[in-house]
Amino acid sequence: MINKKLDQMTTVLNWFLGIILTLMLLITFIQVVLRYVFNSPLIWADEVTLVMLTWYGYIIIAILVKEGKHISLEFLYSRFNQMTKKGLDLLRNILILGFAILMVYFGSEMVINTQGRHLPASHLPRSLLYFPLIISGLLISFYTINHVITLLFPRTGREAGDRR
């Protein structure tokens, strides 16, 4: 049930990511055309693209946590026995969860700190840069808690949080 909800949410997020990546590409491409061909570049283009990149980056970080696809060194891990591996899986998820909670906490602090401040070219609120930290932290928390639960109570037979 929870798994299904998380999967649905992830599908929506993947669509969102595809759209942002396409937009980033288009804005940068159009910027070249506007500058080179029409001699009138957009002042806000770089800034807006970078805001998008930040959102894109933090969401994809969270999704890779769900899928267990972040790069890690496995040559030691793969030599341990099943019990030790399970223990390490648990440790990994708990450490990442702790880190994610800090992301939410300090992301919120930065959002509060930057209230009323704007990016110089686009005039977008500066806090837009720090929101992704909160969102990503929350997503990673959901995903890792779900992994911990499945590790402790492996009812479904599906080893969530396992690599690959």
Binding site: N39, S40, P41, L42, I43, E47, A121
Partner: peptide, 14 residues
């Protein structure tokens, strides 16, 4: 940005 525009040049962010 505004200053460079008023001078007739094209302000280019980089």
């Amino acid at each position: 940005v505004k200053m460079v525009q008023l001078l007739g040049a094209v302000p280019t962010p980089m």
